[in-house]
């Protein structure tokens, strides 16, 4: 696929040289650093500020599992929402600025253009999740004195698959919806639909919708079905990128 490597290199440089280096990594690292500390001291803070309202209810002592579930919760909500907003313009911003016209009148296929973006940004997300998980793991070990790796890593990697699915979805939405806010809104709507779909047991067990809950279960050390949700999510991500390529080929620039 001619032009893929050169364009992918540009995408990497663009991450390193622009605001993209700070927004998602900043959010991920902030929660990775503060998550274990918050998990450790949240019960004490609650006791200090609301002991009279707690009555006979006793807060359990915090464990490493609280840090893990906190990390996964932040990934599933704040990081995912930021990802949807940041990638709302992943393709349309290049169309608006005119850079897509300059690139696509060179020997670069529209397929290479889309695939390079989806690949580089999925890899970028993977690096962020790995870095954030490492920080959470280390922080949890320091704060709680124990941090079993299996639960945290399996949970983080399961969420990473969900994140990659949303990178693919936003690539498609950014092709078909020109305004960044419109694509981001559609992405948030898709997340809401997926969350609702997960309530139906078959979808909540075997489809990508299961990945809204699977990472938390894995973080708690529970045994849950991961093969089908991961496989279907990766297949759906590939299908979404293929759809994005097909839609982009039909677009006039």
């Amino acid at each position: 696929m001619r032009g893929f490597a050169a364009f992918a290199r540009k995408e990497v440089l663009e991450i390193v040289r622009t605001w993209r280096l700070w927004v998602l990594p900043g959010i991920v690292l902030f929660f990775a650093l503060t998550g274990p500390v918050m998990a450790r001291f949240t019960p004490e803070i609650l006791r200090a500020v609301a002991s009279d309202q707690l009555g006979q209810f006793t807060l359990p002592d915090p464990t490493y599992a609280d840090a893990y579930t906190g990390w996964i919760k932040n990934l599933s909500q704040i990081v995912l929402f930021a990802l949807i907003i940041v990638y709302g313009g992943i393709v349309s911003s290049e169309r608006r600025s005119g850079t897509a016209v300059l690139v696509l009148t060179k020997p670069v296929s529209r397929g290479a253009f889309i695939l390079a973006k989806a690949t580089v940004h999925s890899a970028f997300l993977a690096m962020l999740v790995v870095a954030g998980t490492l920080v959470t793991w280390g922080g949890t070990a320091i704060v709680f004195g124990e941090a079993p790796g299996g639960a945290l890593w399996s949970a983080s990697l399961a969420w990473l698959v969900f994140g990659i699915l949303f990178v693919a979805l936003m690539t498609l939405l950014s092709v078909v919806i020109s305004p960044t806010a419109g694509a981001a809104g559609a992405g948030l709507g898709a997340y809401a639909l997926v969350s609702i779909a997960a309530l139906w047991t078959p979808l909540g067990t075997y489809s990508p919708a299961a990945l809204t809950g699977v990472p938390t279960s894995l973080a708690l050390g529970k045994s849950v079905e991961t093969f089908w949700p991961v496989c279907t999510a990766l297949l759906l991500a590939a299908a979404l990128v293929a759809l994005a390529v097909a839609a982009f080929r039909r677009k006039e620039l």
Binding site: R2, A6, F7, L13, L102, T105, K106, P107
Partner: peptide, 28 residues
């Protein structure tokens, strides 16, 4: 083919040399 659009869009964070090298790499 070489093409210049009426309002060329560039990657604002690149320098002129970086942009020319980027375009050159697209042509291999």
């Amino acid at each position: 083919i070489g093409f210049l659009p009426d309002v060329p869009g560039f990657y604002d964070w690149m320098t002129a040399e970086e942009f020319l090298r980027f375009v050159g790499r697209l042509f291999a």
